[in-house]
């Protein structure tokens, strides 16, 4: 910790880097000192009975997921790029959640506390270490998706949930894009309490994941299959499907990858926008609220009507209709008066 504070204090400009699985976040000019969180690794405290853990920012998610799994728990925001080595801090900075965010919410809904070094080199702890806390402003949430623009995270506290006893994955085929959107919306409004709801862009398929007691899942699966043509994936097939998805295996390995925030009704427009770019691929996550675009190496993101964040590759970090207000500069100056961290527009 003191090393981290010293490192922040001793450099004019600083950016934190984790495992580099979302390299665009830390793609800043050479004048920046890059502080690696690799050594800031380890679970500090895990209380299964509290549904909470605290871990250092550089802790690989893989390690956390394995540890909580031993006690039958999981990270309900369903982190991505876990196999690639993504760290907890990097995932917070990127604001990335996986398909499972559909059910209980994203990373922002499970972060409870943050310990960070601000731009003045002070080590601060805000938020709390218990599942419920309303004291002080919600700074932990504010760090989600902030790409290290306000401080270097040292330690994070999260809420976890008990893992559902069983999982089932179904693949549904829609007739066309319009039917796909309708199915996304309708499936989200059922009694089924769907765990994940994903859609492909290249084909009109939808994937539904259910979680709960296995006997209950048999009945729900049958009901879904009676409503729409569906195929239940075998256990191994399903595991591969979700892990490949979490690894963005469908995307160009060395290209540009961006996340888009949209609404389910806009999936059709999103498809059209992706198709308009030669070689582009896309994926729809989170019931149609999250889109991903992947472009071949060297290609930059086209102008989109949705706010986007580029995770790797070229182009601006944040693009689309991201609104800028005076207060944003004021908040940046409040947490980082000497402008040590990258700017909001870097």
């Amino acid at each position: 910790m003191t090393e981290l504070v010293d490192a922040v204090r001793s450099a004019r400009r600083v950016v934190a880097v984790g495992a580099g699985t979302k390299p665009r976040l830390a793609q800043v000019p050479a004048e920046f000192r890059r502080i690696s969180t690799a050594k800031l690794s380890g679970i500090v405290d895990y209380e299964p009975s509290e549904f909470t853990f605290t871990a250092l920012a550089g802790t690989p998610l893989r390690e956390i997921a394995a540890e909580v799994a031993q006690r039958g728990q999981y990270l309900p925001f369903d982190p991505v790029l876990t196999d690639a080595g993504a760290t907890l801090g990097g995932t917070v900075a990127a604001g990335l959640s996986g398909p499972g965010r559909f059910r209980f919410g994203g990373l922002r809904d499970f972060i409870l506390g943050v310990r960070f070094v601000d731009g003045s080199g002070r080590l601060l702890r805000l938020g709390g270490r218990v599942v419920k806390n309303a004291a002080g402003f919600d700074v932990p949430k504010f760090f989600v998706g902030a790409a290290g623009r306000f401080g270097v995270m040292a330690e994070l506290t999260f809420k976890v949930f008990p893992r559902p006893a069983g999982l089932r994955t179904l693949r549904l085929d829609a007739q066309d894009g319009a039917a796909q959107v309708r199915m996304l919306q309708e499936a989200a409004n059922t009694r089924w309490e769907i765990d994940a709801l994903e859609a492909a862009l290249e084909e009109s398929a939808i994937w539904i994941r259910l979680g709960g007691a296995p006997v209950a899942l048999d009945a729900l699966t049958a009901e879904i299959a009676a409503r729409w043509p569906a195929r239940t994936l075998g256990e191994a097939e399903a595991a591969t499907f979700w892990s490949e998805l979490a690894g963005f295996r469908w995307a160009h390995a060395d290209g540009t990858l961006a996340k888009v925030a949209m609404a389910p009704a806009q999936v059709g427009a999103f498809r059209a926008a992706v198709r308009a770019v030669p070689g582009a691929r896309g994926w729809v996550s989170n019931g149609g609220n999250t889109g991903y675009v992947s472009l071949p190496a060297g290609a930059a993101l086209p102008a989109l009507t949705w706010p986007a964040v580029t995770l790797r590759g070229t182009g601006p970090l944040w693009s689309g209709p991201t609104r800028r207000f005076d207060v944003m500069r004021a908040v940046k100056a409040a947490l980082d008066p000497e402008n040590r961290f990258p700017n909001l527009d870097d």
Binding site: G95, S97, R101, G106, R108, A134, F137, D138, V139, K141, F142, F143, V144, G145, A146, A147, R149, F150, K259, V260, A261, M262, A263, N286, G287, N289, T290, W306, P307, A308, V309, W318, G320, T322, R323, F325, D326, V327, M328, V331, L344
Partner: peptide, 23 residues
């Protein structure tokens, strides 16, 4: 100043201004 944070999407990009405002 009149500001608009977040939007109709259940996803977001950039710092969570909505999250900071609530509470």
């Amino acid at each position: 100043e009149v500001v608009e944070f977040g939007g109709p999407s259940r996803e977001q990009t950039g710092p969570d201004w909505t999250g900071l405002f609530v509470g």
